[in-house]
Computed example of a mutant assay.
Amino acid sequence: MVNPSGNNENEIGNRNGEPFTKRAKLQDGPTSSYTMAYLGPPGTYGQMAAAAFKSCYDTNIELIPCPSISAIWETSATFHVLPLENTIHGGVTETLDCLLSSLHGDDTELGDTQRRRRIIADLALPISHVLVVRKGVKKEDIRWIRSHEQALGQSSKFIKAQYPTAKLKTYPSTAGAAISLLNPTEADLEEGEGAALCSKAAAKLYEDQLDILYEGTQGISNNFTRFILLSNSSTSESQTPLPTKQCASPSPTAFYILPSAKEIIPFFQHSTIRNIHSRPNPILTSKGAQNGDSPREKWVHREERFSTLYFIEVDVSLYETDIDRIQKDKGGEKSWYIGKAEWRVTDQQISAL
């Protein structure tokens, strides 16, 4: 835990986000490489975030591209890089659902591993989308636009203004959407020419095959996506590398999952709540389906039918009693506590990559 004075020597930086002059050292242990899973292919914002997290380590970490957010969650990598929220489009539902799914994982080894994963760091990546088409395609020829749902949502104003009749197609990643233009399906060809929203980095990878029609399609210039870094909490410190670069260490925020809105204030009455996301409760929803509950049964309270889980982020720099209380009240179930962002990749470090 972190004490109020901010003098914990295990921290990477001080309470104001300024790095300590003393660098953290890697623990003695295996020198083999580690893996970090992210949303690929090359050119995605997920890859940029993974590279930023990796830059804080002096050990060998192999970046593993995954085709979807759920695929990141399912892989048994050392680290997992997941997009959590965006300044325009809000929380990333697929990430939240993956985090919540760990509460009712099966008895397999992978399910148990997923339940032990913990958030350890975060960063805010600046996001700027470009609209790309195959070489030779004109602006007026576009009939559909493909990208990740977050990119489509962030560029909704642009799309309504420039292509109000275009069909929107979701894709697991922004870079993948751009690559898909190079190998259009039969259905794509029947609908006419299409475009994709992706990063400029992805567009440059295929600049001999793709043209950029517009830059900065996102709704506002102050567009950031927050990524979180997860690690397996069951792995000993001697087996998991520690960051060695001077990353910022803001006042740490802890992450919890609560099953009821009315419990939020009592549980965190001494802490500052930074963020709340809500998603359907996968535990009770699946149980209800298995039990064959009738949708016409009488219900009085919202939670009886619309069971919800709340993903809560709180500032725990001053008060630690809330952490102890929630663990005790929940019978010590560690699945309700899902980590603490104790260090952060700075804007300067991201810009330097």
Rank of each mutant, 00 (worst) to 15 (best):
Q209R: 15
G219M: 04
I264Q: 14
R116F: 02
K25W: 01
E94L: 06
R115K: 15
D208C: 05
D141M: 06
H148A: 14
K54N: 13
A124I: 00
Q150A: 13
L210Y: 02
V314S: 06
P4F: 05
G332N: 07
W343R: 13
A124M: 08
S68E: 10
Q349P: 01
E9L: 13
L99K: 07
V92C: 11
I326C: 04
T93K: 12
P250W: 03
G216N: 12
L213G: 04
T217C: 11
S33Y: 12
I283R: 10
T235D: 11
L131E: 04
N223I: 01
L309S: 07
Q114N: 15
G219V: 00
G153F: 03
P243K: 07
L63H: 04
S234N: 12
L125E: 08
L213Y: 09
L229N: 04
W144V: 04
F79A: 07
F268M: 13
S33V: 00
A178C: 11
I142T: 03
G43K: 10
L242T: 15
A166S: 12
S68P: 00
N232K: 01
E74L: 14
D208F: 06
F255C: 01
Y319C: 07
S231H: 09
S55W: 08
S317A: 15
S147H: 04
P266E: 11
T235Q: 14
S278E: 15
A161D: 09
E191L: 04
N14W: 06
W336Y: 14
P4M: 02
F224A: 00
P295Y: 11
L205H: 14
K167D: 01
G6H: 09
A51G: 03
Q348A: 15
I312Q: 02
T75L: 04
Y319T: 06
G111V: 12
S335C: 04
L125S: 06
Q27W: 03
D324N: 09
I283K: 11
S33R: 10
G192D: 06
T346M: 02
S260Q: 15
N8M: 02
S278G: 07
Y256S: 14
P252W: 07
R146G: 05
H129P: 01
R117V: 08
N86D: 15
